[in-house]
């Protein structure tokens, strides 16, 4: 016990055991969070209606994937959806949205969490009339392209020179993200779209 070698062996074995357990859990988790896995929907979910409902059994709100609901009036094929998502993520990384916003609660805390942004009532209540848009996705695109023109309060989002293409891809990305099962985060999210 008071010999270093005893504890050296202890350090090596406890680390090794934990690392092995972590590897197994990682393999399982990765299969659950691939697009189309147990917890994360396929990218073509952007063609569907997405709701959010409390599930008493899990004591948490879960996304509900409904029937067809086209985005920008288009139906995206699987390949198109893949490409769109890739572009959306690239736009998000290149502008470092995560250094103001959070995604699933990770990032910076200067601006609202984007996990369920697609389902937020604010688009219908405020930004659709403000941007004079007929659809939610149109309002989002207009906001993203010119956020400094449509502020809701004192802290504003800067113009990040997003193109129309970038903005559409981001909207699609946010729609897909809102369909991910996040074990009930953010807590008690109040959406108007809980069919």
């Amino acid at each position: 016990m008071n010999h270093p070698a005893f504890w050296r062996a202890g350090a090596i074995s406890s680390t090794a055991v934990m690392a092995v357990v972590l590897i197994f859990l990682t393999i399982d988790s990765l299969s659950a969070i691939q697009a189309g896995g147990r917890n994360v929907p396929d990218y073509s979910v952007i063609n569907k209606a997405i709701g959010y409902q409390f599930d008493a059994k899990r004591a948490a709100s879960v996304p509900i994937i409904g029937g067809e609901e086209l985005l920008f009036g288009r139906k995206y094929s699987a390949a198109e959806a893949d490409r769109l998502m890739d572009h959306g993520k690239l736009a998000i990384q290149s502008r470092a949205c995560i250094n103001c916003h959070t995604f699933f609660g990770n990032g910076a805390y200067y601006a609202p969490d984007l996990t369920k942004a697609w389902l937020d009532p604010v688009w219908k209540q405020m930004w659709m009339p403000m941007t004079q848009s007929a659809t939610k996705e149109e309002a989002m695109v207009k906001f993203l392209m010119n956020p400094e023109k449509y502020p809701t309060w004192g802290r504003m989002m800067p113009n990040l020179k997003l193109t129309r293409e970038d903005s559409e891809a981001i909207v699609a990305y946010l729609k897909w993200m809102s369909a991910i099962d996040t074990n009930g985060f953010p807590s008690g999210f109040k959406t108007t779209e809980s069919k």
Binding site: T26, L30, Q34, V40, D86, K89, Q93, F103, F104, N106
Partner: peptide, 12 residues
């Protein structure tokens, strides 16, 4: 650069 945000954050 990983497209899927869940997988991205998992490794991150």
């Amino acid at each position: 650069r990983i497209t899927n945000m869940s997988v991205d954050l998992f490794w991150w």
